[in-house]
């Protein structure tokens, strides 16, 4: 019933914004004050989290190696899966970030009659995640049309590609379909797959429900509840926000305030949740380290430089008498040492 809680939480948020923004004078709170707070918490929280991570030492060299490492000349190295040079690490990270390579390998074990166990790569997560994230990216880029004036060409280009199908007016966006589809599939995956369902928590369901609600309010606003949704007016507010002189001109439909409030919630929630994987993917030592620990020594930052290496010979020199007393065998007998002296 964890997903039910997330659902209720999002419904509560919708009610807060929906009813709250109807109160005269509260439009300023929902349209200006909360978005400002949200973006500040987002940037501040994000930077704070990254710095906290950057302060944690990496005691060992722990890249995950998924292929043949450097070896003899005639053995081919798997450069992407077992990188040894910075350039190879960069290539690996690039593909991780832009193509979600590690999700592609998401292995699933299944028990068959026999009994026999099989391991197979389950591509669903990879496919849904790709659909979801790229749709989200397109939507964020498209929204820039509301924040900047003049509009740079690449925003118009994304807009044109996204409305390529020319269905209806306002035209249907591919990314709207992609985002809603992606969220529903990712959510469904958590419900349908028993293993994933077992380990799913509130903080797995909540962002999905929240993002679904953001997409749904956006779509409703664009196609179905256009009353008082005058883009010119809304753009004036959005441009006002980023030029630090916000004004709410004419009346704006309630659905807009709900949409904005949900986005603000997402921004505030972001730095303190698993959504930080956006920054975290760059920081994970299992991906961003080169597998070169045999060529370069990885110094554990915990090491106290005051603590010098202590060889066995030195140890025996220090404790020889006690060792002999206790009957522990020693390499150099006491007499031998005395002879040397």
């Amino acid at each position: 019933m964890k997903y039910a809680f997330s659902l209720l939480a999002v419904i509560a948020l919708i009610l807060v914004a929906g009813l709250g923004s109807l109160v005269p004078g509260m439009q300023y709170l929902f349209g200006v004050v909360i978005p400002y707070l949200a973006i500040m918490i987002f940037i501040g929280g994000f930077v704070y989290r990254i710095i906290q991570w950057a302060k944690s030492p990496v005691p060992f060299s722990i890249p995950t190696t998924c292929g043949q490492g450097v070896s003899l000349d005639f053995i081919k190295q798997d450069k992407l899966d077992c990188p040894t040079k910075t350039s190879e690490v960069v290539a690996r990270m690039f593909l991780e970030i832009f193509a979600f390579r590690s999700l592609f390998r998401n292995t699933k074990s299944e028990l068959h009659n026999g009994p026999k166990i099989t391991y197979e790569s389950s591509k669903w997560l990879w496919l849904f995640a790709l659909l979801f994230h790229y749709s989200f990216l397109m939507i964020v880029i498209r929204h820039m049309r509301l924040f900047v004036e003049p509009i740079p060409f690449w925003v118009n280009a994304v807009e044109a590609v996204d409305s390529m199908l020319q269905i209806g007016a306002p035209t249907l966006y591919l990314s709207s379909v992609g985002l809603v589809g992606g969220v529903l599939l990712l959510f469904g995956r958590r419900l349908v797959s028993r293993h994933v369902r077992y380990i799913s928590l509130n903080n797995d369901y909540f962002p999905l429900v929240l993002i679904f609600a953001i997409a749904a309010t956006g779509i409703l606003m664009r196609y179905f509840m256009r009353d008082n949704i005058d883009i010119m007016n809304i753009k004036q507010l959005a441009v006002g926000l980023v030029t630090l002189s916000p004004v709410i001109g004419a009346k704006i439909g309630t659905i807009f305030y709900i949409h904005l409030f949900l986005v603000s919630t997402l921004l505030v929630y972001f730095p303190f949740s698993k959504l930080m994987h956006m920054g975290g993917v760059f920081m994970s030592p299992t991906r961003n380290m080169a597998n070169d620990s045999r060529a370069k020594r990885h110094i554990n930052p915990w090491n106290d430089p005051e603590i010098k290496p202590h060889s066995y010979a030195g140890y025996e020199d220090e404790f020889r008498e006690f060792m002999v007393d206790a009957g522990i065998p020693v390499e150099k007998e006491l007499t031998a040492v005395k002879d040397e002296a």
């Binding site: 973006i39 987002f42 940037i43 994000f46 930077v47 990254i50 820039m144 924040f147 900047v148 004036e149 003049p150 740079p152 004036q236 441009v239 980023v242 030029t243 630090l244 920054g279």
Partner: peptide, 18 residues
């Protein structure tokens, strides 16, 4: 990261055509 997030702010340069 901060430059990306604040893109509309520095792109508009705190003033935009009405």
């Amino acid at each position: 990261f901060v430059l990306f997030v604040t893109f509309p702010i520095w792109f508009n340069g705190l003033s935009a055509a009405p």
